[in-house]
Design a protein around this nucleic acid. Structure first.
Length: 191
DNA sequence: TCGCAGATATTCT
DNA sequence: GAATATCTGCGAG
């Protein structure tokens, strides 16, 4: 585990769109009991501040989204549709409620444990924001977790992705947002 | 392929 | 008290 050095706070303390793109290819690391589960991040979405009507913080600070208003490098985990956990990482300085949603990863190690947690063989194991949370046993207990230390959950360097391999498009599942925000190409993925 | 039910924390009125 | 949600799995066609 010595080579799984966490990305430091400076990584997250940058413009959200920049962090969203830079997270592609990074390794998501989860300590599950004595097992280390890892996966390469392949898809992210940026949620940027109170001016973004798709962002939970657009209506101001609430108990749920408080962690987004805090310092960068922390996790924002919440429940939607009564059953699905979502994993986000907080970006930018305190007072700026920005985050990057991790939508999809490719399993690297601990695949067997992920399959057991998912309850399915290996089809669509971690290619969806709620699916990867279930495969990695991520729920609201990890809300506000410090991602810059080797504790329960963190990110490490992984590999760089060439700019030509990064694609972008509109975000998913935000029909409640303004038309302008729905069209913003703030989702990023790599093949 | 497509449409919808599902289960509940959180927010709004 | 009512409405809504950064989705997924399943069953019908």
């Amino acid at each position: 585990m010595d080579d799984l050095i966490p990305l430091n706070q400076d990584f997250y303390d940058r413009p959200t769109l920049e962090v969203a793109k830079d997270l592609l290819g990074r390794l998501l690391v989860r300590r599950y009991n004595d097992t280390i589960l890892t996966g390469t991040i392949t898809e992210t979405e940026a949620y940027i501040g109170t001016g973004d009507t798709a962002c939970h913080a657009s209506k101001g600070q609430t108990p749920r989204n408080t962690v987004m208003f805090g310092p960068p490098g922390y996790s924002y985990v919440y429940l939607v549709y009564g059953m699905h956990n979502m994993l986000n990482v907080v970006t930018e300085k305190s007072g700026r409620p920005c985050a990057v949603l991790v939508r999809s990863i490719i399993p690297v190690s601990g695949t067997g444990v992920m399959q057991r947690l998912r309850g399915y063989p290996d089809k669509n194991l971690t290619n969806g924001p709620a699916r990867l949370c279930r495969a990695l046993d991520i729920d609201r207990r990890l809300n506000g977790h410090n991602l810059t230390v080797q504790d329960q959950l963190w990110m490490t360097w992984g590999q760089n992705v060439a700019p030509k391999d990064i694609f972008s498009g509109p975000r998913i599942g935000i029909h409640y947002a303004s038309a302008e925000d729905q069209n913003a190409a703030w989702r990023f993925w790599t093949a």
